[in-house]
Simulated assay, not measured.
Amino acid sequence: MAGEIRVLPVRALDVRGVARRMRKADRDEVWKASGLTPIGALIYSLRKSSSAWTVFIDGRAEAIFGVGAINILAGVGAPWLLGTDAIERHAAGFLRGSLEWRDQLLRHYPILRNLVDVDNRVSLRWLRWLGFTIFDPVILRGHEFRPFELRCFDV
């Protein structure tokens, strides 16, 4: 099932739509990591980001992603993406696009690093597919998360 995928700068309207329809794995992950609701997690992530975009599939906002500085001097950024079930329904197009998005983030920060919920299996597979190294679990707020990292010379 192919859908037209476009990526545009994020708008406030996009945040509400994605938050209302956020996939369960992402809702669970943000709750475990921060105790935030989907809308709260998106607003927090956007405030911490230096750049953020909305992924539209067939004209509808289905995911929002961005990157924020962890250490500007060392070139380390924290990438993030929160989306709806549509990203799995349109996996082929989403995967193709995500390679370009990954490279765009690496132009901002040559080292990308963050955490993913150990139960978020789709995200773990996707991160491995993008070339990220997945590390042993760590505990955050009483839940297991796997650190992940990609350096521009890994790509």
Rank of each mutant, 00 (worst) to 15 (best):
L106S: 09
P9C: 02
R20H: 03
R121F: 11
F94Y: 13
W101L: 02
L150T: 03
N114G: 06
A86Q: 10
A74I: 00
R102A: 00
I72C: 05
I39F: 08
R146P: 02
E149W: 09
S51I: 04
N114I: 05
P79E: 00
P110W: 09
F56Y: 15
E88F: 12
G40V: 10
W31K: 13
A25Q: 07
L124H: 11
P147D: 02
P38A: 07
R128S: 12
G83D: 01
R11T: 14
S34Q: 09
K24M: 12
N114C: 06
A52F: 03
W31R: 11
A12L: 14
H143K: 13
F135L: 11
L46K: 15
R16S: 10
W53V: 00
A19C: 06
V67L: 09
R125F: 10
V155T: 15
V18S: 05
A86C: 03
V7Y: 08
R151G: 09
E144I: 01
R146Q: 14
I134M: 11
K48L: 13
F153D: 05
A91Q: 08
F148T: 12
A2I: 04
D119L: 14
F56E: 00
L13F: 11
G97Y: 00
E100H: 01
S50V: 15
G17C: 07
F148V: 10
R16P: 00
A12N: 13
G131M: 10
V7P: 02
F132K: 09
I64K: 08
S45I: 04
R20M: 06
A2E: 11
R27A: 15
E62A: 10
L81K: 02
G59R: 03
I87C: 10
R128M: 11
I87R: 13
I39Y: 07
G17R: 15
T133G: 08
L112G: 04
K32G: 03
V18C: 06
A69D: 08
D119N: 13
N71H: 12
S34H: 12
V122K: 15
W101Q: 00
G66I: 02
G17Y: 10
G131Q: 13
A19K: 12
D85E: 12
A78E: 04
S98F: 08
I134P: 04
R47P: 00
W101N: 01
D85Y: 11
E4M: 12
V138S: 05
R102G: 03
L82G: 07
L105Y: 10
V118M: 06
V116F: 06
G3I: 12
N120G: 06
A19H: 09
A25S: 14
D119T: 09
A74H: 13
S51F: 06
R89H: 09
F65H: 03
L46I: 15
G93N: 07
L95E: 01
A78T: 08
R27L: 07
R60V: 15
W129E: 02
V138G: 05
S49H: 11
V122A: 15
L150E: 03
D119A: 14
S98E: 00
V18H: 05
E4N: 12
A91M: 07
L46P: 06
W80T: 10
A74Q: 09
V10H: 11
I111W: 02
S45K: 14
L46S: 08
H108P: 01
I64P: 04
L140I: 15
P137N: 00
K48H: 14
S51M: 05
V7M: 03
D136I: 07
T37Y: 04
R128A: 12
P38G: 04
F65L: 04
L105T: 01
A92V: 05
A33C: 13
F56D: 00
Q104H: 06
